[in-house]
Simulated assay, not measured.
Amino acid sequence: MRLIAATFLALSIACNRAFELKDFTFGDHDYNSLLNVLNETNKKCPDVSRIYSLDEKTVEGRDLVVIEFTAEKPGTHLAGKPEFKYVGNMHGNEVVSREVLLALIAYLCQGYREQDPEVVWLMDNTRIHIMPSMNPDGWELANSRPRKNGQKPWLDGRANANEVDLNRISL
């Protein structure tokens, strides 16, 4: 229970605490800038992070990229060490989860580098996998549409490029 509480505490802190993220700015991160955030984070925190892609690509051929954080052997499953997975942007036109997870990525790296006790504890005791966008194709579509009366048509891009709502599929 302590692990779950600590993980949610970290998310809460990243979103609510007056904490200055030095290397991150909220915005509309397209696919390439999302990859840049992950790559820059990995360069700053190589000992506690690793980037990997899922085996399958999106309909339009984009990698589904994940960054993992842990203090001990990133990329190696350790029996008994809890693992958490955070997935954002399942609907391409819903960008808040994408931005919050990118902020969490920056927060975890910065917090570890600054030896923040909560972040160090999380890194020592868990493996955290973060996929900021499960539907980068939908986001790119939604963001590319022309504005009408100053507003984007945000229903565009909700599903993936095959018009499948990723939140409604059954395996």
Results as ranks from 00 to 15, higher is better:
100 V>P: 00
112 Y>C: 08
146 P>L: 13
93 N>W: 02
109 C>P: 05
108 L>W: 01
138 G>L: 07
154 W>C: 00
150 G>C: 07
127 R>C: 11
108 L>Y: 02
136 P>A: 10
133 S>P: 04
97 S>V: 04
105 I>F: 08
126 T>C: 14
138 G>M: 08
132 P>V: 02
99 E>M: 09
98 R>G: 13
112 Y>E: 13
137 D>T: 10
123 M>C: 14
102 L>W: 04
125 N>V: 02
131 M>G: 04
92 G>E: 03
130 I>L: 11
119 V>W: 00
102 L>V: 09
131 M>W: 04
141 L>E: 07
150 G>S: 09
150 G>R: 03
152 K>A: 14
98 R>N: 12
106 A>G: 15
92 G>F: 04
141 L>I: 10
107 Y>P: 01
140 E>D: 11
105 I>C: 03
141 L>K: 13
152 K>T: 11
141 L>D: 06
93 N>V: 00
92 G>Q: 06
92 G>I: 03
127 R>M: 09
125 N>L: 08
142 A>E: 05
96 V>L: 12
120 V>S: 14
128 I>V: 10
146 P>N: 14
99 E>I: 06
148 K>R: 12
101 L>Y: 05
108 L>G: 10
120 V>E: 12
95 V>Y: 01
134 M>V: 05
115 Q>R: 15
117 P>R: 12
97 S>M: 04
120 V>P: 06
137 D>E: 10
116 D>S: 11
115 Q>V: 03
151 Q>N: 06
138 G>A: 14
127 R>W: 00
128 I>R: 11
